[in-house]
């Protein structure tokens, strides 16, 4: 298994390099620099000499290939550079935001799994009944709702109307501040998990080994427990892994709306202000997290289903 994990991790290296190159090229061609972002609010005219100095300090005066070479050399030594805006190492800027994003992503996935997976199971087991219909309408609605709108509605209902929860912010990092953003972010993966689970369970219900089990007189409870659940779990786990990574990427909207101090809001701010080292670093970290989570899921799938080989 160790060889498998090491091989999977090594496979991520070319992906990371490709992503790094892509981000670099993208932000080399789009107009706007950090210096020009400083007069974007029209409030303070930035002196041309100071702008020129900033561009020099941040390496904009160097040819693209020189900057790329420097960037790759830095990456090779695990150095993500220095933030233009905060003038601190990018790693420490990202580290400040990683925990809030991890909290949010984890909480939203817990919400998605706890609601979505049972909903999918019930819908499949009561296929074509009103339970199935309600479950799937809920799932489709969850997938269709824009996160921004949903977040606002949650704020309105649970903060303003009911007064149960705070409407924004990180507070002291306690659970009550986490609930609304986590639900806003977790509804879409919950809906997807419900649909995927339902489809997987329905598919397995018609499989030969399930029919054989029933024909042999195995109780329905045991059929569900031993055959349906274990076999459906592989597909569900794969979806969870993919969604976990997606949730980290999609946290951008929710974090901005709820003033949640995570990686997503850092990324948006950094793109707006052309703090390129932080943009590059944040995207790389998100990609890395996505790859790590999915590697972990692959390992778990192999543990659950012995038919999946480590090769």
């Amino acid at each position: 298994m160790l060889t498998f994990i090491v091989r999977r991790l090594l496979q991520t290296l070319p992906i990371i390099f490709a992503v790094a190159a892509l981000i670099f090229v993208l932000f080399s061609v789009i107009p706007g620099t950090f210096a020009s972002s400083m007069s974007e609010d029209g409030r303070s005219v930035l002196d041309p000499e100071i702008m020129a100095r900033m561009n020099k300090e941040f390496g904009y005066d160097d040819p693209v290939y020189v900057r790329f070479g420097k960037y790759i050399r830095q990456l090779a030594s695990f150095d993500l550079g220095t933030s233009f805006r905060t003038r601190q190492p990018v790693i420490s800027v990202i580290a400040d935001r990683l925990w809030p994003t991890a909290q949010l992503a984890f909480a939203s996935m817990v919400f998605a799994i706890v609601i979505g997976v049972p909903l999918g199971f019930i819908a499949a087991l009561r296929s074509d009944s009103w339970v199935d219909m309600v479950s799937m309408v809920t799932a489709v609605s969850g997938l269709s709702l824009p996160k921004f709108w949903l977040g606002l509605m949650l704020m309105y209902l649970f903060a303003l109307v009911l007064g149960w929860l705070p409407s924004f912010g990180y507070g002291d990092g306690s659970f009550r501040y986490l609930i609304l953003p986590a639900v806003a972010l977790g509804v879409a993966p919950m809906a997807l998990l419900a649909r995927t689970t339902r489809a997987a369970v329905l598919d397995i219900m018609n499989a030969d080994f399930v029919r054989t089990a029933r024909a042999k007189g195995m109780s329905e409870r045991r059929v569900v427990q031993w055959h349906l659940t274990r076999n459906a779990l592989v597909i569900v786990l794969t979806t969870i892994g993919l969604q976990f990574g997606t949730v980290i990427g999609q946290a951008v909207v929710v974090e901005k709306l709820f003033s949640w101090p995570g990686l997503g809001s850092l990324l948006v701010d950094s793109v707006t202000l052309r703090d390129i080292p932080v943009v590059q670093g944040s995207i790389l970290v998100i990609v890395l997290l996505f790859l790590l989570i999915n590697t972990l899921v692959d390992v778990l799938c192999a543990v659950i289903d012995p038919r999946i080989k480590y090769s």
Binding site: L152, A159, L160, S167, F168, G169, K256, L257, S259
Partner: peptide
């Protein structure tokens, strides 16, 4: 820091 006007509106009306 509340950049979104709609979120600020809810927070203000909610007396936060």
């Amino acid at each position: 820091i509340i950049g979104e006007a709609a979120a600020r509106d809810v927070a203000f009306r909610n007396k936060e």
